[in-house]
Design a protein around this nucleic acid. Structure first.
Lengths: 266, 266
DNA sequence: GTCTGAGTAG
DNA sequence: CTACTCAGAC
């Protein structure tokens, strides 16, 4: 079977429901992982997704901030509780579909000051990574796993518009780069995007709203990821397609994140 | 010459600039008086009015609340300072166009409690009426004058959906009705709307946002007025046309006020 | 119900 | 820059 998974930090699903449906109609992933839905469970626009052909829906919302959701053409099970967010915010989902564990994360952004003592948000972010990394070490590595979402770290020199300037900015500071590397090591993850577009090519999934013309300044970051563990990689029988839908960032009143998508045969 | 004057409480001119231009294109008044523009002078969308054929613009704005503006096909002079608002808020404009004095007012709404002692906003409203009435008594009555705007009083029994219930509600309380009557007496004003649609016909220019269907409940008030003094009346050589553009209140995300317009030959 | 401001977050 | 909350106004 062919499987296609997408992920998108939508920055308010109610405000951008038309754009999400438009994206689904053009990209037709089997499963879409959403982050920053910014609504409570009862406020999620289920009907629009059902009508678009995505009847299987899991919403993990809260009032106002954060919130993740998963909409799927395929049925899925929810059987795992993933205790990575110490504040219990709506940032984590774990499902099993087509025999694969799929985790959808909106990892904390981490505030402005890259100092765990002075800035509790930064500490919260790194602790999320630490908990996730530790969990992976004790998890059965033979179970196929895909991690999707806004991980809020740009891990490589070419995942930021300026490595030198960004080393001081939360999302690309040394402790974050180390946390991301530790995660990759612990899970043995494969990054299909970087495989397809090798260094030193720049890859971005996010561009600030503050730039008048994000294409012109192109000061982006690669904060969104789809990570494949070795057990899943071993089951894939085709080349892995991976695409950043950066044209979507050009739409009218867009999210500041572009959707990302991977596709492969099992 | 034929002269056409309109008035509209727009409830944020930046949010509804498309609707204002649409209204100008359909009604083509020579001068439009706006109230509740809710912006500072530099934030007023001058260009849209200029492109619509209204190059003469006077903006009296402030941050966030209130604010009045006047856009005109005809040139005008601004020569009079009208000291009716004791708080110095952006609620008053006076110009002279086509030999006529035109005053554009956004008179204070007056808060909830109809008691001058307990509610300073109510006192402020009545003092505005008192100052205006006193000023008219000392003004040269031979100068043609038109008062336009949201005067925030529904003066007659048939200017409210329920005279009995509204007598307790600010906009139609006895001291306000008296203040309005004193104003009309002092200026000798002619109300072209009531002339054209005599009692007991209901006339409304405002409907609350809270009603699901304002047409169905039709709990409106006549708060907006265009008042003609005797010297102006004497110069008018045609019947006076007067229309409440209540269809505009049906537009998508409308102001809670409808535009009003009068037209006559001089 | 629909605006604006201030504060918070990204 | 854009989104959310909440309060204040009408």
């Amino acid at each position: 079977m062919r499987l296609s998974i997408a992920s998108w930090n939508i920055n308010s699903v109610r405000l951008r429901i038309d754009q999400v449906i438009r994206f689904l109609d053009l990209a037709r992933p089997d499963i879409l992982c959403l982050q920053e839905i910014k609504c409570q469970n009862g406020e999620f626009p289920r009907k629009a997704f059902e009508e678009a052909g995505y009847p299987h829906i899991l919403v993990t919302g809260q009032k106002g901030w954060h919130g993740v959701a998963l909409v799927s053409k395929l049925p899925f099970e929810t059987n795992e509780i993933l205790p990575f967010c110490r504040r219990g915010e709506a940032r984590v989902q774990g499902i099993k579909a087509a025999g694969i564990d799929l985790w959808n994360f909106y990892i904390p952004a981490g505030g402005d000051v890259p100092d765990r003592e002075a800035n509790d948000k930064f500490d919260h972010k790194l602790e999320f990574y630490e908990r996730l990394t530790a969990y992976l070490k004790s998890r059965n590595p033979d179970a196929p796993l895909l991690i999707a979402g806004d991980l809020n770290i740009a891990p490589g020199e070419n995942d930021v518009w300026s490595h030198r300037q960004m080393l001081k900015v939360v999302s690309h500071t040394p402790p974050e780069l180390e946390a991301f590397a530790n995660l990759m090591d612990a899970g043995g993850f494969h990054d299909a995007f970087r495989e397809l577009w090798p260094e030193p090519q720049k890859l971005f999934t996010w561009w600030s709203y503050r730039a008048a013309d994000f294409r012109k300044s192109n000061r982006g970051l690669r904060l969104d990821h789809l990570l494949i563990n070795p057990a899943l990689k071993a089951r894939i029988t085709s080349p892995i397609a991976a695409i950043i839908h950066d044209r979507v960032r050009e739409w009218d009143r867009p999210s500041d994140h572009a959707p990302i998508q991977i596709e492969f045969d099992l």
